[in-house]
């Protein structure tokens, strides 16, 4: 069953984020994927997350597909204009990649190539509409395609971020849904209550939301996020719990496991786990579920 079919059937779906390598050694990424294959429904492949140059999501998603796994390929507005985006989308579909996650992408100034010129020819919303056009057999110039792709497309939402208006987030989701997005990935969620104001405003409730669970790596990381990352909120209890824990790494894994369980029990159709390079901890997390 594909990711789309599993979600349609109401099965709980676990997505795992797998960063493509910075280089050409793909074996570690594929080893992680193989170890998780039976326990994870699909792999989320970021496109140069935080504007750090790595192997493209298209390449990594294709490699996963070749191994019989189901990737969700990020498509990012930052690095490609409308020609390149559409061309890569056609290539992706021809390579068997059918799940997409449309993102704006972080500004190059935040990454490791801060002198790069950003593109942003299309916004995420316009890209969703362009994907819809390709599916209807037309490109953005209105020219007919020789064969149209068919994608299962998601987008991101800032639902659950402190300081964001729940009304605007719900409106944004509705707008992106009209443009063809079928699921919405949230920022890392440490307190599921924060999603409720948006959930209450959505016609389909929590059914279109895919909350992200971020694996913390240390007490320092948790404190740093709490102080410096405005769109992620870590409750003080979580930080205190890490302070008290004798084995911090084990506690971080346990917090992630409990986070996934809590979101599953609230009825979210899927959860995405992000480990930011600690993919080797993923088997431990999924086995504990």
């Amino acid at each position: 069953m594909s990711l789309k079919e599993k979600l349609a059937a109401g099965e709980f779906v676990l997505l795992a984020e797998l960063e493509p390598p910075k280089g050409v050694h793909v074996a570690p990424m594929l080893d992680h994927a193989r170890r998780l294959k039976e326990r994870v429904e699909a792999f989320l492949v970021p496109e140069m997350h935080q504007a750090v140059m790595r192997m493209s999501a298209l390449g990594a998603a294709f490699l996963l597909r070749q191994e019989g796994m189901e990737p969700v390929m990020q498509v990012c507005c930052r690095d490609r204009n409308r020609l390149a985006l559409q061309g890569d989308l056609l290539a992706a579909f021809a390579c068997g990649i059918e799940n997409l996650l449309v993102v704006s992408g972080e500004d190059p100034s935040l990454g490791d190539h801060h002198r790069a010129r950003a593109v942003y020819d299309l916004s995420a919303l316009e890209l969703l509409e362009a994907i819809g056009g390709l599916e209807r057999g037309r490109d953005l110039a209105g020219v007919d395609l020789e064969g149209a792709p068919r994608f299962f497309t998601g987008a991101t939402t800032q639902a659950g971020s402190p300081g964001r208006s729940a009304e605007l987030e719900a409106e944004d989701i509705a707008q992106r849904m009209r443009a063809g997005a079928r699921f919405f990935l949230t920022p890392p969620i440490f307190d599921p209550e924060l999603l409720e104001p948006v959930v209450r405003r959505l016609d389909q409730g929590r059914q279109a939301l895919v909350p992200t669970v971020l694996l913390l790596k240390s007490l320092g990381m948790a404190r740093y996020i709490e102080r410096n990352v405005p769109h992620i909120r870590i409750p003080p209890e979580t930080i205190e719990r890490l302070q008290r824990a004798p084995d911090k790494v084990r506690e971080c894994v346990q917090i992630a496991v409990e986070g996934i369980r809590a979101l599953r029990s609230r009825g979210y159709p899927a959860v995405a786990v992000a480990t930011l390079g600690w993919e080797d901890k993923l088997p431990e997390i999924v086995e504990a579920l």
């Binding site: 100034s109 801060h114 790069a116 010129r117």
Partner: peptide, 12 residues
């Protein structure tokens, strides 16, 4: 050398 676009609009 490769241009530093951060002085342009790349840095916001």
């Amino acid at each position: 050398p490769v241009k530093d676009w951060s002085k342009d609009r790349a840095g916001g």
